[in-house]
């Protein structure tokens, strides 16, 4: 019943990425941590490291985290070369020290992608994701009276599939894991969610065209079906979404009525 590992500890060596600013040259800094409890989370281990750094009078290591339960998408570390570390279907904050062995050297880096520049140390600027959302990741519904929520029935399996796509937490691990630094998994999750639901139909074509175009503008690479994104995704978002997005994009781009509409001031369709 009681976890056998309760008070077990390990000693580890850390290689952490330090970078003063976006422009500065980064480097790996080494630290040793002794007596790390294996039931600690990875980020709690970094908290302990920071206390050690502060006590020695140095500038603490900057890394991001917030909810620490895998839902806010804030934490974003490449651990041992893998986005969010070696455990599948988990964010960095859901990584536990029991994953590592005594004496192991652990390398910690920021997300590395042109569209996610480093701000400091392990913190990157992921606002490009917001700009992709701005381009069309919504239904256009305004605040006000709407039809009763049960007026349009949505089959359970459709609602479930929409929810599978909607589970994306916007962390950017898909980009960090992709050799092309493509944001296709992120973008396609939103496109798919809204394409599946009746509420997303009115601006369906405009949405996919604008979101994909924005993704390209931000400097994310193309998808070449390497599937690294799906493997790294803490929410196990399926790459089927990317296939759906490509289909949606093609359909929208070929639709004559939509092409005509693109010329109008509001983007048409």
């Amino acid at each position: 019943m009681m976890s056998a590992s309760q008070s077990k500890t390990i000693n580890i060596r850390l290689r952490v990425w330090r970078q003063e600013s976006r422009e500065a040259q980064g480097f790996f800094e080494e630290h040793e941590l002794k007596g790390v409890l294996v039931d600690m989370s990875f980020l709690e281990m970094l908290d302990v490291l920071n206390e050690q750094i502060i006590k020695s009078g140095k500038r603490p290591l900057e890394f991001e985290s917030d909810c620490r339960e895998g839902i806010c998408g804030t934490c974003s570390l490449v651990v041992q070369g893998q986005a969010h570390g070696p455990v599948r279907g988990a964010t960095t904050c859901q990584l536990y020290m029991r994953t590592f062995t005594d004496g192991e050297t652990i390398t910690i880096e920021p997300w590395r992608a042109k569209a996610f520049p480093v701000i400091r140390d392990l913190v990157t600027d992921r606002r490009a994701f917001d700009r992709i959302q701005m381009a069309g990741g919504y239904t256009g519904a305004k605040t006000g009276p709407h039809a009763d929520a049960n007026a349009i029935l949505i089959p359970k399996d459709l609602a479930d599939r929409a929810m599978d796509a909607a589970a994306c937490i916007g962390c950017g691990a898909c980009v960090a894991a992709c050799p092309n630094a493509s944001a296709s998994l992120f973008t396609s999750a939103k496109v798919t969610q809204l394409a599946l639901l009746p509420q997303g139909q009115a601006d369906r074509k405009r949405r996919v065209i604008r979101m994909v175009d924005q993704m390209d503008k931000e400097g994310f690479g193309s998808c070449s079906n390497l599937q690294e994104c799906e493997a790294a995704c803490p929410k196990k978002i399926s790459i089927q979404n990317i296939a759906i997005m490509k289909q949606e994009y093609l359909k929208a781009a070929l639709a004559a009525d939509f092409r005509a509409g693109m010329g109008s001031a509001d983007g048409g369709a």
Binding site: T143, H146, A149, I152, A162, L194, L197, G200
Partner: peptide, 8 residues
Amino acid sequence: IDQCVSQG
């Protein structure tokens, strides 16, 4: 609830 459903 109506509002949120309309947002998808």
